[in-house]
């Protein structure tokens, strides 16, 4: 199971990568494996406000449906439009081409409340 050490994680299996004041958000390799083939992703509109650990979308997989929770608060500045035609890119490349939204972060202090790779690994291997 791939858990990159340079990312932060939620207990709900989202990851976040912060570059400058923009956070890129997706779901983890573990999450995509548990969900199985992803059929579609309901995305927020660009400009929408998201709250830390607030719901921002839904992911429908063959085996289950799951809500998506934002690791950080902020304004949605980009969504991965490629997911419309090829949602299974999340299964193939969860930390790369399978990113879901980008958020302009309002409070960098929130990152301290997220899990590091080691902390997240403990959750999924417990």
């Amino acid at each position: 199971m791939n858990i990159p050490s340079d990312l932060k994680y939620t207990k709900e299996h989202e990851w976040v990568r912060v570059e400058g004041d923009v956070a890129t958000i997706g779901i983890t390799d573990y999450a995509q494996g548990e969900l199985g083939d992803i059929v579609f992703v309901e995305l927020p509109d660009i400009g929408a406000e998201v709250k830390q650990l607030g719901r921002f979308g839904t992911i429908e997989a063959v085996k289950a449906v799951s809500d998506l929770f934002s690791p950080v608060s902020g304004k949605v500045v980009d969504i991965n439009k490629g997911l419309d035609d090829d949602p299974m890119v999340i299964n193939r490349d969860p930390y790369g081409g399978g990113w879901i939204i980008k958020v302009k972060v309002t409070s960098s202090g929130e990152l301290a409340q997220l899990l590091g790779a080691d902390g997240y690994k403990k959750i999924v291997t417990a």
Partner: peptide
């Protein structure tokens, strides 16, 4: 076994 490579494929 519920799946090997993926249910859709």
């Amino acid at each position: 076994p519920v799946q090997y490579k993926g249910i859709t494929s």
